[in-house]
């Protein structure tokens, strides 16, 4: 028993390093998707203190809209632009209809409101686009579909080209986002709003405009995530479950930290794959990916309540 837990898995790893690399690569790619969803959540949380449960369904919704528009006969890149327009309309109407009347309510009420939005979007999306799994328009968007085979240590390592594209695009997106938040006027306004609502409003930053903007950026991230995940697994409402995976990422990384979301996402993606392959399947009957990330985050949080990268919690009466 002890051998199975502490020795055998590591022996396996050393015996087949190419397989280990393959597992880590798979974990990295799904970790990037978790990190992207977590990023959308962090952005909204920082600027408005809203824990946006609807981010996961926004991913599905964006991907479905894209595929749906393409099937209606629009060219691929026009559908991307049209989807962005739809996401903007969504951000605008969420701000106008849901958030504005609820400004200043307790956090849990706003959280519940985003669950309400989630249900609404699920029903709405199913009625318009139907429930069946759709094929992502990978080739039409110019995403390569081949694969690269490497042979480290005489083994076999297969890297899918679309996964590589995902990694590169995600990296560019994050870099662009950080530059936007750090260098531009709008970006600074977002951060100011995150620091102190009232102070930011008193120097003339419009809460409403920024909220629409932030939700729109979250929608853009959702579209990228949707395309990436859809290219791997097809577009359906089952995608929604990956949204839950973003939650332990947030616990690990801290709700406020963009770099925390990214590092946390990559860590969780890789660790859960490792655990599943080397411990979960042989010892526990598999499918441990549903809970491993949560339990890991829970254990980390017991020792570091603010998360790995969160701001130090100072409490006063």
């Amino acid at each position: 028993m002890l051998n199975d837990i502490f020795i055998a898995p590591f022996a396996d790893m050393i015996a087949a390093p190419d397989f280990l690399l393959q597992v880590l690569w798979e974990g990295l790619v799904s970790g990037i998707l978790y990190a992207l969803i977590a990023l959308g959540l962090v952005l909204i949380f920082r600027s408005s203190r809203i824990f946006n449960f609807a981010q996961g369904i926004m991913v599905v919704f964006a991907a479905l809209t894209l595929v749906g528009l393409y099937q209606m006969g629009l060219p691929a890149w026009v559908s991307v632009a049209a989807t962005l327009a739809v996401m903007f309309a969504l951000a605008w109407s969420i701000e106008r209809v849901v958030l504005r009347p609820l400004v200043g309510q307790p956090d849990i009420i706003l959280f519940m409101a985003t669950i309400g939005i989630t249900l609404f979007l699920i029903g709405f999306g199913e009625i318009i686009f139907g429930g069946e799994t759709k094929q992502m328009i990978t080739a039409e968007l110019g995403i390569p579909t081949g694969s690269i085979t490497l042979e480290p240590w005489g083994g076999l390592l297969i890297l899918e080209e679309k996964d590589i594209t995902i990694v590169i695009v995600a990296g560019l997106l994050v870099a662009g986002l950080l530059a936007f938040l750090g260098k531009t006027r709008m970006g600074r306004a977002i951060r100011a709003l995150g620091d102190d609502h009232q102070a930011a409003m008193s120097v003339g930053i419009s809460l409403q405009t920024i909220w629409v903007l932030v939700w729109f950026i979250a929608g853009m991230i959702a579209l990228v995530t949707g395309v990436a995940w859809g290219a791997r697994a097809g577009v359906s409402f089952a995608l929604e479950v990956i949204a839950y995976k973003a939650l332990p990422v947030l616990m690990l990384g801290g709700l406020e930290s963009i770099s925390g979301a990214i590092i946390g996402g990559l860590m969780i993606g890789m660790l859960e794959k490792l655990f599943e392959i080397y411990w979960g399947q042989p010892l526990l009957g598999g499918n441990t990916e549903t809970w491993f990330a949560f339990v890991l985050a829970l254990i980390v949080l017991l020792f570091r309540p603010q998360g790995l990268f969160g701001e130090k919690i100072i409490e006063r009466v």
């Binding site: 332990p248 616990m251 549903t290 949560f294 339990v295």
Partner: peptide
């Protein structure tokens, strides 16, 4: 037990650990 150290949304996510782990246990 985590509620002694974790608060708010962090605790809510921590209770999701119970949710997913227990349902997995019911299956396995």
């Amino acid at each position: 037990i985590p509620s002694l150290r974790i608060k708010g949304f962090y605790l809510a996510i921590a209770t999701l650990a119970a949710q997913f782990f227990l349902v997995w246990l019911f299956e396995k």
